[in-house]
Write a protein that binds this DNA or RNA. Structure first.
Lengths: 170, 170
DNA sequence: TATTGTTATACTCTATAACTATA
DNA sequence: TATAGTTATAGAGTATAACAATA
């Protein structure tokens, strides 16, 4: 197959680095806010938020892991912390006894509620406001439409460099 | 001043989470590639790349810290690692004896060169290709134009939650 | 006295591999 | 045998505060 051009033009590099920089700065600010307002990390916030979106406030570990955390043990670690803090509950899943069902507690909902307004305000200030600029050529919509497909692509097309470690080959 | 609306609409939240997710997935993949191809973390790669862009391959610690790392000690830590690996050199700055000048070595340039092609290819695959989609309504340019100003805004407008810790007030 | 950078230290997070229990 | 989750453990990274040296 044809060799890919081994370099990017300035605009491509610019887009890449702009994305990484913005995300990095935003993440840093957001971690700060979440920690100050509710002693949560961003990952923990994501987990709680996902549970909060679930109809009954419950989800299986595996479901939770998808898209939030990269290793199972990492999720167990975070779930431990959240459980110790009284924000979630863990119990064996009814249908599949191997599974664990994580459930948001009232305290968990309260924590989420405590943190959310400030969180939103920060995101508004840091990201959304400058995105739309002075005119109203809705940059927010543009960004969402640009990045949505990219997210899908990334979730379905794992990089070849991250060699599959499933299915023991011996 | 008027109270800001305490919630975001679905599109705003969508843009925010899409950005965080894409950046998170991309970062994860990129860390993997850099580690496999050249035993570098993304932060280390950024530091080397910045030095590589400098005319003489040198920069002051403080300059390097801007935009790459969030604490001075963090930079010292990374600079230690890079120096031990022979990729950079540290020496007292000529003009200001308090300062340290970090310089890219030949090995550092070589490492950068070793890592770059694969890096670019990965970014191309994961981010740039899906950004532009099938049609050529250059999404890359759009993303760069959207995010460039946001980056500037974030760099100049620190969130109020991250209270200034400079200038001792006592 | 303010600034540059380093050190000591503690902490958080992530990943790998081995392990248990259920399907 | 395969899958869900946990545990043990190790390693990388980050931040805070105290410190030394120079401006």
């Amino acid at each position: 197959m044809p060799q890919k051009p081994p370099s990017l033009d300035a605009q491509q590099l610019g887009a890449y680095f702009a994305l990484m920089d913005v995300a990095s700065l935003l993440r840093h600010a957001v971690e700060q806010q979440l920690k100050d307002a509710g002693d949560l990390s961003y990952v923990q916030f994501q987990l709680l938020a996902r549970l909060g979106d679930s109809p009954n406030g419950s989800q299986r570990m595996t479901e939770l892991a998808d898209g939030v955390v990269y290793s199972r043990s990492g999720l167990t670690y975070q779930a431990d912390l959240l459980e110790k803090a009284g924000l979630v509950t863990r119990a064996p899943s009814p249908e599949d006894e191997r599974g664990t069902t994580v459930t948001l507690t009232d305290a968990g909902r309260a924590r989420l509620a405590a943190v959310f307004p400030g969180h939103i305000e920060l995101v508004q200030q840091l990201l959304l406001a400058p995105l739309s600029g002075d005119d109203d050529d809705d940059g927010v919509r543009a960004l969402a439409e640009l990045l949505g497909p990219v997210r899908e692509h990334m979730r379905t097309a794992p990089p070849r460099s991250a060699a599959r470690r499933r299915r023991s080959s011996s």
